[in-house]
């Protein structure tokens, strides 16, 4: 579904991502792991087009989207829930969900999807008319993921969904991510929290200092114990 070849991202003279290649197959949940500053978020931003890669190819469903604008990538079925959630704090919960469906032209389907997510997350239903900025961190993360799903993406990129959340909430979030995978959604999850990310992952990539260090099934990480500790820890 998604294939990235030799991606390079630079900020001025600093290379954040060096020659990174990865693949995500249809229906797969792929985890991209690595420590802080490894270039994970830069990779995601390059995939969504918010930063322009210095070189490399990004192919979605056989179509080269390397030079396509962010807006059109979303329309092509790739969506991302950014690191730090970035919900629209000054808009209500309902307005956030509606904006998530901005590219859709089926008001009825949109309404049904909103109802589905409200049923799934009763908190969002209670807070429907409130400013989203008043939600707790975990609730905001739920809202951010729901908002991404409102566009009915083929591929969802999740950037650090566990960031700044209590362990109990993190487990809930990943339970939900597991459900999404079970429903057939393709996911690329970027994480520092390896234990949670590995619960449902089909395959794992490990990056550090902008370079790919390891790839394989989750079990391969357990084998190479040193690698696990070195790049991921805890």
């Amino acid at each position: 579904m998604l294939s990235v070849d030799n991606l390079v991202v630079r900020y001025g003279a600093v290379s954040a991502v060096r020659d990174l290649s990865l693949k995500v197959g249809r229906g797969e949940l792929v985890a991209l792991l690595g420590p802080n500053g490894a270039g994970k978020s830069s990779t995601i931003n390059a995939l969504t087009g918010l930063v322009t890669p210095a070189s490399g190819r990004i192919v979605l469903d056989g179509q080269d989207i390397s030079r396509v604008r962010t807006e059109d990538r979303i329309r092509a079925g790739l969506t991302s829930t950014p690191e730090g959630r970035h919900i629209f704090a000054n808009l209500t919960v309902g307005e956030n969900l509606r904006l998530g469906a901005a590219i859709r032209r089926d008001p009825k389907g949109v309404r049904q999807d909103i109802e589905r997510f409200l049923a799934l997350f009763p908190v969002l239903s209670e807070r429907y008319g409130q400013a989203a900025g008043t939600l707790s961190g975990g609730e905001q993360q739920m809202l951010a993921i729901a908002r991404s799903l409102m566009s009915r993406p083929k591929l969802l990129l999740l950037d650090e969904p566990s960031l700044g959340l209590a362990p109990k909430i993190v487990v809930q979030i990943f339970d939900f991510i597991g459900e999404l995978k079970a429903e057939g959604l393709t996911l690329l999850v970027v994480e520092q929290n390896a234990r949670q990310a590995l619960r449902f992952a089909d395959r794992v990539y490990v990056v550090s200092a902008g370079t790919l260090r390891h790839s394989g099934p989750p079990s391969s990480l357990a084998d190479e114990h040193g690698l696990f500790n070195l790049y991921i820890g805890g």
Binding site: Y11, G12, A13, V14
Partner: peptide, 12 residues
């Protein structure tokens, strides 16, 4: 983008 500005700022 933001990061770029910072690095530039330091340089300048």
């Amino acid at each position: 983008m933001a990061r770029f500005e910072v690095s530039q700022a330091i340089e300048e």
